[in-house]
Amino acid sequence: MKVLVTGGAGFIGSHIVDLLLERGDDVIVVDNLSTGQEAHLKPEVLFYRMDITDHRLSDVVAETRPEVVIHQAAQIDVPTSVRDPLHDAMTNIIGTLNLLEACRNAGVRKVVYASSAAVYGNPEYLPIDEKHPVAPLSGYGISKHTPEHYLQVYAQLHGLAYTVLRYANVYGIRQDPRGEGGVISIFIEKVLKGEPITVFGDGEQTRDYIYVEDVARANVAALTNGDGQILNIGTGQKTSINELIALFEEVIGQKMEIHHAPDRPGDIKHSYFDNRRAMEVLNWRPETDLSVGLQKTLTYYRERITR
């Protein structure tokens, strides 16, 4: 299969590209390298350094004629979306619309779209399933949710199939610490530099942490499954910051220095997914235990720092 991955040199995208190559797929990557790295890409990838808002994107899609587009490229930083909502909307909404027009014109069969837990806002109940009300608390949540409506309309009007994958807190190797699951990469960076970790509030706030390779497998599964579906991609397990720290200490074999700070205004206290629909529809399940994922991630960053 020929697949185009936007943001394919980035954290999640590069893992998706690796899986596609292992399958023997032809892979095209579009990435502006604002957070991604070309070094993440293997030589057999056809790479275009380009922003998804660029009008030339239509030419790239028309020339390469992918069957499916996996859309990972995005502005991922919540504070940036609050500080500069125009940039956030331009990338996440207008950039996605630019891509959808390119797909429509080139006869692309399907788009797999990376959405986010941020669309839900403060949970009304737990675990969060796909029927949960959408009430984003930031421009980022709004800009990730808006393209979901465009995808539904493009499917109805133009026959462009889609699957929306709403990610929980993704972590793992190659992560940009600014992402939603960035707390783990931040913790690791602090540990390896011998610096204290800051915990906001009592540390009992919970999240659903899913390893990046599990997310990549969900995207690959969506190439042929889940048409017209919105699916939560998480582990279905909640982990508190205090539990995360205890796991870290177990993995590294030492106590961590903790500094406590007041709760941050607007922070969601508890959030984790009901992932049963994704497991059924995609014939997929998360396979990486949190302690195993932490060990893999720690080893990766430790090797990078000691080079």
Score class of each variant (00 low, 15 high):
residue 55 H to W: 08
residue 52 I to N: 01
residue 45 V to A: 10
residue 107 G to R: 04
residue 103 C to G: 07
residue 108 V to E: 01
residue 61 V to H: 04
residue 51 D to I: 09
residue 98 N to G: 03
residue 80 T to N: 11
residue 46 L to S: 15
residue 104 R to Q: 14
residue 51 D to K: 11
residue 93 I to G: 02
residue 70 I to C: 06
residue 86 L to M: 11
residue 101 E to I: 04
residue 108 V to W: 00
residue 70 I to W: 00
residue 78 V to E: 10
residue 42 K to G: 08
residue 64 T to Y: 12
residue 57 L to Y: 07
residue 108 V to M: 06
residue 95 G to R: 03
residue 79 P to E: 09
residue 38 E to L: 15
residue 76 I to H: 12
residue 60 V to C: 06
residue 86 L to H: 11
residue 48 Y to D: 06
residue 79 P to N: 08
residue 35 T to H: 07
residue 46 L to Q: 14
residue 35 T to G: 10
residue 74 A to L: 04
residue 99 L to D: 00
residue 94 I to N: 12
residue 55 H to C: 13
residue 47 F to R: 09
residue 35 T to M: 12
residue 42 K to N: 10
residue 107 G to I: 05
residue 79 P to L: 10
residue 53 T to N: 13
residue 106 A to I: 06
residue 81 S to M: 05
residue 99 L to V: 06
residue 44 E to D: 12
residue 70 I to G: 00
residue 58 S to P: 01
residue 76 I to K: 05
residue 93 I to F: 09
residue 87 H to C: 04
residue 61 V to Y: 01
residue 51 D to R: 07
residue 47 F to H: 10
residue 43 P to Y: 06
residue 71 H to N: 09
residue 44 E to H: 08
residue 73 A to G: 05
residue 81 S to I: 07
residue 102 A to T: 05
residue 70 I to L: 15
residue 40 H to F: 10
residue 35 T to F: 12
residue 101 E to G: 07
residue 52 I to G: 02
residue 42 K to Y: 13
residue 47 F to I: 12
residue 57 L to C: 06
residue 72 Q to Y: 03
residue 93 I to Y: 03
residue 83 R to L: 13
residue 99 L to E: 02
residue 57 L to S: 06
residue 73 A to H: 02
residue 110 K to W: 05
residue 47 F to Y: 14
residue 73 A to P: 01
residue 46 L to N: 14
residue 96 T to R: 00
residue 94 I to P: 02
residue 54 D to K: 05
residue 61 V to L: 09
residue 71 H to E: 02
residue 84 D to T: 08
residue 53 T to W: 01
residue 91 T to H: 07
residue 60 V to Q: 06
